[in-house]
């Protein structure tokens, strides 16, 4: 198997913690992984992405080639579209619905929404609203991960185990909140995916 994932968003949104959990889950299953990250200047509110590659065979390139990404997971809708040429023709986009506007020329949201709507396999999820409703405001990225679980084809129990491992040092209540977030994301995705 091979699974090429582009994680993207705005510097500071926390895409790397999603990557850490997926990476841990893949490692636990004895798979190969390579994960290229962005450090430095862009982390100051610029666009950031991470190429996460998982395979049952050794992986050569640290970067994903055009048209090869199986899933784009984005914490921001315009950022999801930025990497469109990377997506495989039967790939999935899982994106947070709410825009992060920190630039003066952010495009009209109608444009962004309509472009996303034209794609065949998209899940748009308002992670901020869900997090707020369930009083887990700091777990938006894990809600997004939950929504991506099926598209990723990753074992749900394994993701839960990785969440336990990674958040363990932050205490049981943080672990519980993130497990809840994962479940909420998955539940949403079951009922709201577009597949043409």
């Amino acid at each position: 198997m091979k699974l090429d994932i582009i994680l993207c968003g705005v510097g500071g949104q926390g895409i790397l913690s999603i990557a850490t959990i997926i990476g841990d889950a893949a490692m636990a299953q004895g798979l190969y992984i390579k994960q290229a990250e962005v450090h430095g200047m862009s982390q100051r509110g610029g666009d950031v992405h991470s190429d996460l590659r998982i395979s049952s065979q050794p992986i050569a390139s640290d970067l994903i080639a055009k048209g090869q990404a199986d899933v784009i997971i984005s914490l921001e809708p315009m950022e999801a579209l930025r990497y469109l040429p990377m997506l495989s023709l039967d790939g999935w986009i899982i994106t947070a619905a709410a825009p992060f506007v920190n630039i003066p020329d952010y495009p009209d949201m109608k444009e962004i929404d309509s472009q996303l709507a034209q794609l065949s396999q998209v899940i748009r999820i308002d992670v901020t609203a869900i997090a707020k409703e369930h009083q887990i405001p700091r777990c938006t990225n894990i809600i997004l991960l939950g929504a991506a679980q099926e598209a990723l084809g990753m074992d749900y129990t394994q993701l839960e185990m990785s969440i336990r491992t990674i958040f363990a040092r932050k205490g049981e209540s943080v672990v519980a909140m993130n497990l809840r977030a994962l479940a909420l994301g998955r539940e949403y995705a079951k009922h709201h995916q577009t597949r043409k």
């Binding site: 705005v10 509110g45 994903i64 315009m78 495989s88 630039i103 444009e111």
Partner: peptide, 29 residues
Amino acid sequence: TPDNVLAAFGLETAPHLDEASHIANRPPA
């Protein structure tokens, strides 16, 4: 990049979508 190396060998990139329109630059701040 994997893409410019592929091109150097005259190999084709996988089929993919065009760049989306209306994408604004997001420089660091």
